[in-house]
């Protein structure tokens, strides 16, 4: 049994371990390990294309994580007041949004946006007031990337924040109202601090998902290149230790963010259990 478990973990993690190992390879070829070096990291960091892709990825991840956190939190709090059948429908819709394969979201978003642009662009051409300057042309790019990622990651934030908000003692809200706080005051002084770790965890997860996403980005990025897209296109020219270095860095960043998110979710649990005991 123990051997079996070891075999499974080896199977799962050895490819990743190999990538990390070979990112430190002094030689050029993946096939022979010629010694330790960090020169590929330096190479990546001075590669303007990789850096531009990184900037795009970070911008998109940051923006979509912010949007997802804000709207996801609002949706989660709003949904608390919804009861009965309507609630079931909403709940199902949220879980479906999480489970739908990325490729479906990618294609669906692409088709929807292209169709919308087809109607909107001529309309803009027609009705754009001249004093506002040149007519903008809607296109795939940053906005469509951020939009698609927000849509996908917002469901995550809703699930996380809602479970935290549901676990919150309703009496705290009542106690705050009893002590003369207006509903708005109660939100900022009580509800928000209570659910803040969940919002932050949702933000970090959204950031990670958006940063790592290849499939959805591939469809809706237009002419933009995110880091995963850059890696994908360079790999077609052969796996270099440079790619391994990127992979290792992305891996470590993602892991760090996931651990941080987990920690935030656990931290609040510990605090509230301390009070109840």
């Amino acid at each position: 049994m123990r051997l079996y478990a070891i075999a499974i973990y080896l199977f799962l993690y050895s490819p990743i371990a190999i990538i990390v190992l070979f990112s430190f390879n002094a030689g050029r070829h993946a096939s022979d390990f010629t010694g330790l070096s960090v020169k590929w990291y330096g190479k990546v960091l001075s590669n303007p294309f990789a850096m531009e892709a990184l900037t795009t990825s970070l911008t998109v991840a940051l923006a979509s994580a912010i949007f997802a956190s804000v709207f996801g939190t609002m949706a989660a709090l709003g949904l608390q007041k919804v009861k009965g059948r309507v609630r079931v429908v909403y709940d199902a819709a949220i879980y479906v949004a999480i489970m739908i394969p990325g490729i479906v979201i990618g294609i669906a978003t692409l088709i929807a946006l292209v169709t919308a642009f087809k109607f909107l662009n001529p309309a803009l051409q027609e009705f754009w007031p001249s004093w506002l300057g040149n007519v903008p042309k809607l296109n795939m790019g940053y906005t469509s990337l951020i939009g698609a990622h927000t849509m996908f990651t917002m469901a995550l934030v809703i699930v996380i924040v809602r479970s935290r908000a549901a676990g919150m003692d309703r009496a705290l809200i009542e106690a705050s109202a009893d002590l003369y706080a207006t509903p708005w005051g109660t939100f900022w002084q009580i509800t928000f601090p209570q659910i803040f770790p969940a919002i932050l965890a949702g933000f970090l997860l959204s950031f990670t998902f958006s940063f790592d996403d290849f499939i959805i980005a591939f469809f809706v990025a237009g002419t933009e290149t995110t880091l995963p897209i850059y890696v994908f296109s360079s790999i077609r020219r052969g796996v270099t230790p440079e790619i391994n270095a990127i992979g290792t860095m992305v891996l470590l960043t993602s892991l760090a963010l996931l651990v941080a998110a987990q920690f935030l979710l656990r931290y609040r649990d510990r605090q509230s259990s301390k009070i109840n005991s």
């Binding site: 106690a175 705050s176 002590l179 009070i275």
Partner: peptide, 28 residues
């Protein structure tokens, strides 16, 4: 409730866990 001149001691106290004792007491 927030406009009524009455105050309540709740069954499980409903103290605000993210505030210390002084901030809890000063809340009103």
């Amino acid at each position: 409730a927030f406009k009524r001149p009455v105050n309540m001691v709740f069954q499980h106290y409903a103290l605000f866990p993210h505030l210390n004792v002084a901030d809890n007491v000063a809340y009103g």
